[in-house]
Amino acid sequence: MSRILIVDDEDSILKSLKRVLRLAPCVYGNQTFTLEISAFNTPQAALEAARTEEFDLFLSDYRMPVMDGIEFLKAAKEIQPDTARLILSGYADLNALVRAVNEVGIDRFIGKPWNDYDLMSAIGQALAHRELLLENRQLANLVRVEMGDISPEQFEAERLERIEPGITEVNWGPDGSVVLDPEFQTRE
């Protein structure tokens, strides 16, 4: 089961996407992904969800009030760096595209109106790619442990870090105390 987060300020878009993603099989190569969809009509609500739940893929609109798709994906990437990122937008502005690629490193930019089949295969491809990356990293780390390049502690720390970014960092207060809740500490 792959968990997908969708953000669009247009409810009708969200509903139509949910219909498609519920029905069609998401296939890439010999892999088939079953999808579980969480849809949000504001980037803020979506970010809130990203803080508490783990997702495999973010699919975001570009033009939204208050926060655009790129700002949203940037913020989401900080929370879940290994999640695949896609933009679905009817606003084909070259500037937006450049920013999306350079600043956020999106996997795909899909235009509106979209073709359901293309959308599904893009999602499937992004999920497969992500799985491959993670698996590679896992295997590479195993090899490094075996070769003694990294310690099992480091290996475990990386695993934990992936699940909960920032968990292995210690936030020191000015008086030498350890601040557990990073929300109360300004980063950097």
Partner: peptide, 17 residues
């Protein structure tokens, strides 16, 4: 274009569904 592409996008997708 954005204003038109949004509804065309979901209507098109809905038709597929």
């Amino acid at each position: 274009a954005h204003e038109i592409n949004n509804p065309v996008g979901f209507v098109n997708s809905n038709l597929g569904t």
